[in-house]
Design a protein around this nucleic acid. Structure first.
Lengths: 226, 226
DNA sequence: ATCATTATTTAGGCATGTCTAAATTATGAT
DNA sequence: ATCATAATTTAGACATGCCTAAATAATGAT
């Protein structure tokens, strides 16, 4: 039995990723939502869904949306992996801002080389989260635990890793920058102001700072066991 | 007057680069040679030449080959720049071997982001030569002086930069690796064996070594003034 | 249950980039 | 100068991925 590795086109990859993204919110992805994500028309999406279904990446229930097959999900996770690793590279190594990387990563993720992506992963020290705090699947498609707790709900004395920003406006991102807070940092919750509940934080490296409850409600964390 | 930046397709870019490559050897590039480089057919190349001529990148003299216009050359130089910078990145940062990078760089060079390529150039410290010793155009398309002198012709006491390998077989590349010699290294020619003319070399960093005349005749260098 | 509305699919068309086969042009040997 | 040969271009076809417009299916309000 010979398996021919069939290269996916850029457009096919884009569709898989869009479906994956939409399935984070629900069990299946609807044609019009896919079309909107990709800035195309619904009829074009239908065509592509048929093709992807033929190739076994997608289960297409006409008029009722599409869902990834296990094979399709694997493919999508690899794309997400590539996208987020490149974003990490752009920010951590090339000094891009959080907000400048998406478009470029969108192109880089379609470069196809197993070796390249594994070397990049090594070079970046196997990051678990990208610069936006989104989890990076490992080479087998496993996702690290997603952050679900809010910094605002932490107790004094807890040690946590700041892993994501929820609904972050540019203003919020800039505020965090100005306080020296960045994704991936380990923080000790040193204290809590009685009057307004604001939190006193001590980063593992860098100066201590204070954030308001309003801000802390946008910051997702995972506990650090150590 | 509004200039619309017209994005080139991947195929258009490939053709420009092929023509550029062939023009290194002669004044114009012939249809069949372009076709051979790109693994397509001559008729496909003709179509593309007409298109590129319409867009002003190429001067096409039917039956007599094609030549880049200044605009086409600028475009081609930027592609060469991207290709060689990515090759440098793959080898110097990700630990790829000299011989493994071409195909991947071929994909990466088509990623379009002015900022990306300038940041990459900064990150790599503005290398003048890629891992094969080929010159990297700067952001304005200027090429560093190409190495023309052979190490074999150097005098004792000269300080030179090893910039390229001419007609390098895999065996030769491996021999160089084993002696710790790599593209870009600055070498002092410390001595010369009277009996067989072999050269004693002292790298700026790393252990001294000796290479035979046969080997030295394949190594291109540029003088280092310092 | 019907119907207006919305989502989706189908049908048919178009641009791109490739191909094969046929026609045309250039070239070098005689 | 002619002609066989090689290179090139032209003509016509096809797959891909997109579009618009029309037909069809699902949905929710009445």
């Amino acid at each position: 039995m010979i398996y021919i590795r069939r290269m996916l086109t850029r457009s096919e990859e884009d569709h898989l990723k869009a479906i994956y993204g939409l399935q984070q919110a629900g069990p299946s992805a609807f044609t019009k939502d896919i079309a909107e994500r990709l800035s195309t028309k619904a009829s074009s999406v239908t065509d592509m869904l048929k093709k992807l279904a033929d190739k076994g990446f997608v289960k297409h229930a006409p008029y009722h949306g599409a869902a990834l097959t296990p094979k399709g999900r694997r493919q999508a996770l690899m794309l997400v992996r590539k996208h987020r690793l490149w974003e990490t590279f752009l920010v951590q190594r090339l000094g891009f801002g959080w907000d400048e990387v998406h478009e470029v990563a969108e192109q880089l993720e379609h470069v196809s080389s197993e070796k390249l992506i594994e070397r990049l992963d090594d070079y970046l020290d196997h990051p678990a989260y990208d610069p936006h705090g989104d989890p990076i699947p490992d080479r087998d498609g496993r996702l690290p635990e997603r952050a679900t707790r809010l910094l605002a709900d932490c107790d004094v004395g807890e040690r946590v890793r700041f892993t994501a920003v929820q609904d972050g406006s540019d203003a919020l991102l800039q505020l965090l920058d100005s306080k020296g807070l960045g994704i991936g940092m380990v923080l000790l919750v040193r204290g809590r102001e009685v009057f307004d509940g604001s939190l006193e934080l001590v980063p593992k490296q860098g100066p201590a700072c204070t954030v308001s409850v309003q801000v802390a409600r946008h910051l997702l964390i995972t506990p650090v066991h150590a």
